[in-house]
Design a protein around this nucleic acid. Structure first.
Ligand code: SF4
Ligand code: SF4
Lengths: 144, 144
DNA sequence: TTTATTTAAGATAAAATTGTCTTAAATAAA
DNA sequence: TTTATTTAAGACAATTTTATCTTAAATAAA
């Protein structure tokens, strides 16, 4: 459903957020140990999320990544997905057709539109606070 | 939403079906002219669909691809998608996690499940007959 | 039978995605 | 100030996906 980059990004964010709830900054090595992802690739992705302000970072000893606690309920899944994959998920028609007659769309059109709208709604309504709380409470895990 | 291979496959099938309604066999060159796709790549994909019996073909002069008219309402979108992409669309969790606690899934779980079920339902309920009729009647087009 | 036309199959190549490695910059502690 | 630690950035490499090219096989017509 998402690219590997987005998958790693989401998992990394969830882990970082769960630790930020405990006032802990985490190093990239710790992150990938908990989400089972390639370290350098993950570092690049998390770095991109730092650039757009979703994650905060501090360099040097005792540094690491963290997320402002009071912003966790404002960061939605959609922010992460679009930061990494762009808005490609929401563009174009499910058949990849360049154009078609909007007035009389093909039989798949409204079904595609509905599914995409549902996906968007989900990404828009799910906060990383929710996901991080799910992880912290043991409701979900990021690897085994 | 789908791979390029699947996109081309779907479009090719729709075009071939629309012509088979007119009792016309079509050559791969004609197909790609109408769906705007790379000819050799498309040929390979349509060839795979021939192998699984979704499309029929005749080699040599006056040959080409066609689809049994009476089978068009039995071939579903899902058959094409799974023939090309496998069932990867339906597997695993949307976050790409290997495992998690089924008893207490994370907040995204049911939303993901619902979206995937909707997608599956759409692919399962849409026949190529419908799509080909949409194309033939001008309700949709495959390129411009 | 010979030739032309078409699909079939598979090798090769290009592009995109995924992943690694190296060096630089920042920063804290000794 | 020096050193160790960490993120930042970007070059490089591997893999997967997408696309092309070449040759073979089938078949119909001349
Ligand atoms: S009408 Fe059909 S072809 Fe056109 S955008 Fe919608 S799904 Fe795609
Ligand atoms: S509960 Fe969450 S992590 Fe587990 S399969 Fe469902 S969406 Fe994925």
């Amino acid at each position: 459903m998402f690219s590997k980059a987005t998958e790693y990004g989401i998992k990394a964010i969830i882990y970082i957020a769960s630790q930020s709830m405990l006032e802990r900054r985490v190093k990239i090595g710790e992150v990938v140990e908990h989400i089972d992802s390639p370290v350098a690739f993950t570092a690049k992705i998390v770095g991109a999320l730092v650039k757009v302000g979703i994650v905060q970072s501090i360099t040097g000893p005792y540094g690491g990544f963290y997320i402002d606690r009071h912003r966790m309920d404002q960061i939605k899944m959609i922010d992460i997905v679009t930061a990494i994959d762009g808005d490609s998920i929401f563009n174009g028609c499910g058949l990849g057709l360049k154009e078609c007659d909007d007035e009389q769309p093909c039989p798949m059109h409204y079904k595609f539109v509905q599914i995409r709208a549902d996906l968007k709604e989900m990404l828009n309504s799910t906060t990383i606070l929710e996901l991080a709380e799910g992880l912290k409470s043991g409701k979900s895990i990021l690897m085994r």
